[in-house]
């Protein structure tokens, strides 16, 4: 029997679901977390809701997504409250046990744990060991991308990946800037999710390998080139049946007609997917350090401008970004 999700959305792709997202920390009138679960106000009608680990898994079992996420106790990564952070980390481990026990379709749906522990390396290690011991099909590193410094972010990712088993997917939640993606891959991460490519499209920004262009800038009003020269996305590609989208037309409609947001979304998502395709090809060819050097050279004409956090993070995995070797 098809699950409800098969009926609700016709899907040629994998679907990953989560019931409680980090965005809720910043967006919602939130949320009291007790051992029982998360109490929060419904964003739809303001009524109080209770989300328990069991209910979270039951919902995701019903939806029938391919990857389901545990319910975790997440608070702002940069929280200075060490005691609360430890409580959240330990509770996330206990909730994982409840999620595993409640999971009805372990053969068809993959439950991922989520490593918590803020920016405290020792707490992250402890959490990682506990989570790995529970042997879920995949492992997520959570609670990041919440305003922490990039060097802290990299340190935490590397701390976790060093302790993770080789043959399980490692998912860093909420990561999306191109620099963050390529550096995280070097630090041992496999998969990511982020709203940024489409959100920034709605704000009128185009991602290119030479940086992000704000197409709302009036200098693009008479720019009749593609969003990015050489790009193969549906907007930029040339040849038979090409759409022939110009920066000028996108500029003409940014913040005025939704079509510009659609066009920039098409371009930006293609950019991100193509970036990861190039990343995979470079890894297979055993040329990832050279790929990284080229990637940063495209973004910054002067090596002195390379972001220090990226240089340092890559040095931790023995890649010298400023080396002249290609």
């Amino acid at each position: 029997m098809p699950s409800r999700n098969d009926l609700l959305i016709i899907r040629p792709f994998y679907i990953l679901t989560s019931t409680f997202s980090f965005q809720m920390v910043s967006l919602l009138k939130l949320a009291k977390i007790t051992e029982e679960g998360v109490r929060f106000m419904s964003p739809h009608d303001g009524t109080p809701m209770l989300l328990t680990p069991e209910h979270s898994i039951s919902l995701q079992n019903t939806i029938g997504s391919d990857i389901i996420m545990q319910l975790d106790d997440v608070l702002v990564t940069t929280s200075p409250d060490h005691v609360r952070m430890r409580e959240a980390m330990e509770r996330s481990v206990r909730w994982l046990d409840r999620c595993i026990a409640a999971h009805k379709n372990p053969d068809t749906q993959n439950l991922f744990c989520i490593i918590q522990g803020g920016l405290d390396t020792e707490m992250r290690r402890e959490c990682t060991r506990e989570m790995v011991a529970r042997n879920t099909p995949g492992i997520a590193i959570g609670g990041l991308s919440g305003g922490e410094a990039k060097s802290d972010f990299c340190r935490v990712v590397l701390t976790c990946t060093e302790l993770l088993p080789e043959l399980k997917p490692r998912y860093v939640m909420g990561i999306g800037y191109p620099e963050d993606l390529v550096v995280s891959v070097a630090l041992g991460a496999d998969m990511f999710d982020c709203v940024w490519p489409t959100r920034t499209a709605r704000f009128g920004n185009a991602i290119t390998k030479h940086g992000v262009l704000n197409i709302r800038n009036s200098k693009y009003a008479n720019d009749f080139g593609p969003l990015e020269e050489g790009c193969e996305c549906a907007c930029c590609r040339t040849g038979e049946g090409a759409m022939g989208i110009t920066r000028a037309f996108v500029h003409h409609n940014t913040a005025k007609e939704t079509v510009s947001a659609h066009l920039l979304s098409i371009h930006n998502v293609w950019y991100q997917l193509n970036l990861m395709r190039e990343v995979r090809n470079a890894i297979i060819a055993d040329e990832y350090p050279a790929f990284l050097r080229q990637f940063f050279a495209n973004l910054y004409p002067d090596k002195a401008d390379y972001p220090e956090w990226a240089v340092e993070a890559l040095r931790m995995v023995n890649i010298d970004l400023r080396s002249n070797n290609t």
Partner: peptide, 21 residues
Amino acid sequence: EMAGRAATGAKGEGKETPVVP
């Protein structure tokens, strides 16, 4: 981002982790 300053690249670095709340 809304103000057109894409928060990525060199501008986003060099800051200490802010104590958010």
